[in-house]
Design a binder for these strands. Structure first.
Ligand SMILES: [Mn+2]
Ligand SMILES: [Mn+2]
Ligand SMILES: [Zn+2]
Ligand SMILES: [Zn+2]
Lengths: 141, 141
DNA sequence: ATCCAATTGCAACTAAAACTCAATAGCAAC
DNA sequence: GTTGCTATTGAGTTTTAGTTGCAATTGGAT
């Protein structure tokens, strides 16, 4: 709770932006969610607690949280964004079950190394990547 | 030109659907494009040739072409779909330059094998995957 | 305490895609 | 070839996700 707030405060200060009550509330709610979430999940949770933050402010603040490295945007096979914490989580990729919608996280350092190798071959400077395998989980296959 | 038309015809027949002039025109235009394209590219190209197909029909037909295995939907870092041919192209993944927007295709069988291995570990039955590396190409780095 | 730039919420807007529906047209059966 | 049923079409409307403009408000540096 302190670490993420500090990180946001530092980022905002460095850009001449302000740490508002709205941003504090959103940050708190975001870090009380321990799974992938979407904007509307957040909106509804905040409404339940009677924190009446507008959707505009949510969208604007989530962008800031991604920029300052607290969150990552995750695109599943849908037309809207999902988010997950970066702070306190190792990099990973996703298996996505088409049956039950379950998301399984995995990480594989050999794959990561081979990705670097591919980038080297193309003289491409990687900045990030997204690996997503769709299919059916143990229960749904 | 024959092979893709046969594939579409077969698929349509198997589903009790019809091979209409509109679908034929769209198929022809789609296979005259030899790069990634989006719906509006297709729409504009067809207008230029005075093939006045509605956007609704384009959206509906592209879905059919994906279903029957002629096209693949590709999601770059944008909020709308792109497409590419499957017929006559090996499976590949993409490097995406954030500078110039260039898309570089690559394929790496070791990565593919490791993906299978990961799926095995989770008893996950893969159906497809998407690997996208963002960064900067040789010219833009 | 003052002041100005940043922020907020709301409404209006946008882009991509899906849906509704009346008119039309494949195509299989006769 | 005609008929009839169902799929298809285009135009317009709706939905979804997100962005933008703006007037009122406020954080926080001085
Ligand atoms: Mn995750
Ligand atoms: Mn490609
Ligand atoms: Zn499942
Ligand atoms: Zn480039």
């Amino acid at each position: 709770m302190r670490i993420e707030e500090d990180k946001l405060r530092d980022y905002l200060k460095s850009k001449g932006l302000k740490f508002t009550p709205e941003r504090q509330l959103i940050l708190k709610e975001v870090f009380s969610i321990h799974r992938h979430f979407e904007v509307d999940d957040l909106f509804i949770r905040m409404r339940r607690r009677d924190n009446r933050i507008s959707r505009s402010t949510l969208y604007r603040t989530l962008r800031l949280l991604v920029e300052c490295g607290l969150l990552r945007e995750v695109l599943f096979e849908e037309r809207h964004s999902h988010y997950e914490h970066i702070l306190g989580h190792e990099h990973h990729d996703h298996l996505l079950c088409l049956g039950c919608g379950q998301v399984i996280e995995f990480s594989n350092s050999s794959i990561e190394k081979l990705q670097s190798k591919v980038c080297g071959e193309y003289k491409f400077q990687p900045q990030g990547h997204r690996l997503q395998i769709t299919g059916y989980c143990r229960k749904c296959r």
